[in-house]
């Protein structure tokens, strides 16, 4: 019996929300197609997340533990995944669409002679092939695509499905490989500040744009994020000026987020920004220009000056949380 394999990103041993969504979909597709469902984790201590993965229905967990996975280099990951795909006889491999996955997907497809559907929002078996719906043209349109043959690799945008539990006792297969030395060498990682909510996995995102002009406005955005327990995102305009870190950028070039709640503060809503947030469940826009295109996608639009709207909003949320 062949396998629907689910790739799990588990920084510090904890599977990300997007990984559990993908595992949920893998489980459903395995059931529908008469396949086994398995998860694969590449980590320094890959078995650590097996319990959680069992809770979400992974019958088998391929745990590939190696010191190499402490570094975000693509070559060891491609080699390990190709190996596990062969072991598991993978017909379909689902991935969360993270930067790490984008870094390896193309090479892995060639290595394993797989068809690949990147960055989809829906995936299903269709008439003996794999069908998917994926945003294209800066998320202006959806393309209905289809892949032939086996295996097929599919990466899914975060928030495309709801993660749900279906507990099993997982069999852990500890895979030890002799990984080739990587030609690339990591020199350093200038990381995000510790304790910050990860943008791609966040339930609530507060995003700042060029309207957030000075330290006072930035402090307001940070306070709003804090009272909401939100991650902070940004438009390209304020990443370019260095006011917000490059890792905060949301959009076609930046990250794609689909939180339950996105609040855009002083963002106009250029197509390349909207590309990264239009999948959010609820969108609030705060902008002083009533004609800003962000209002076209906003669930709730507040036309006003952020310097007076955001403090009022913070006060109101505090009141709500208290009572």
């Amino acid at each position: 019996m062949s396998t629907v394999l689910s790739y799990v990103a588990a920084p510090e041993g904890v599977p990300t929300r997007a990984s559990l969504e993908v595992l949920t979909r893998a489980r459903q597709l395995a059931e529908a197609g008469g396949h086994r469902v398995a998860a694969v984790v590449l980590s320094t201590d890959a078995a650590a997340s097996a319990d959680v993965l069992g809770r979400y229905g992974a019958a088998t967990v391929y745990a590939v533990s190696d010191a190499a996975f402490a570094e975000p280099l693509n070559a060891p990951a491609v080699q390990a995944l190709a190996d596990v795909m062969a072991r598991a006889d993978a017909a379909l491999v689902l991935f969360p669409s993270t930067e790490g996955v984008k870094d390896l997907l193309g090479a892995l497809a060639i290595r394993t002679d797989a068809a690949v559907l990147p960055d989809v929002v829906e995936v299903d078996w269709v008439d003996g092939g794999v069908g998917a719906l994926r945003p294209v043209m800066a998320s202006k349109f959806m393309a209905r695509v289809r892949a032939e043959g086996s295996p097929v690799l599919v990466s899914m945008r975060a928030g495309s499905v709801e993660a749900s539990e279906a507990p099993v006792e997982p069999t852990v297969e500890n895979v030890s490989l002799s990984l080739d030395a990587s030609a690339a060498t990591l020199r350093e990682i200038a990381g995000a500040a510790a304790g910050m909510v990860d943008l791609a996995d966040a339930r609530i995102v507060v995003a700042a744009g060029r309207g957030v002009k000075d330290a006072a406005a930035k402090a307001l955005v940070e306070e709003l994020a804090e009272v909401l327990g939100a991650a902070i995102g940004a438009s390209r305009a304020v990443v370019e000026t260095g006011v917000f870190p490059a890792t905060a950028q949301i959009g076609q070039t930046g990250k794609v987020v689909s939180p339950d709640l996105y609040i855009g503060v002083g963002i106009s809503g250029a197509i390349q920004h909207v590309a990264g947030m239009v999948g959010s469940r609820t969108i609030v826009a705060i902008n002083q220009n009533a004609d800003a295109p962000i209002f076209d996608v906003a669930t709730y639009g507040i036309v006003g000056d952020l310097y007076s709207v955001v403090p009022a909003l913070i006060a109101e949320i505090k009141k709500h949380k208290a009572g």
């Binding site: 959806m142 393309a143 209905r144 209002f295 076209d296 669930t299 507040i302 007076s308 009022a312 109101e316």
Partner: peptide, 28 residues
């Protein structure tokens, strides 16, 4: 190995709502 069967518009979002008034009223 991959074919595009066709293009579709994005799923329509429910029409948005504008909140009027003073900042305090908008926030509430």
């Amino acid at each position: 190995r991959v074919t595009t069967l066709g293009y579709e518009p994005l799923p329509t979002r429910a029409a948005g709502r504008r909140l009027d008034g003073e900042p305090a009223a908008q926030a509430a």
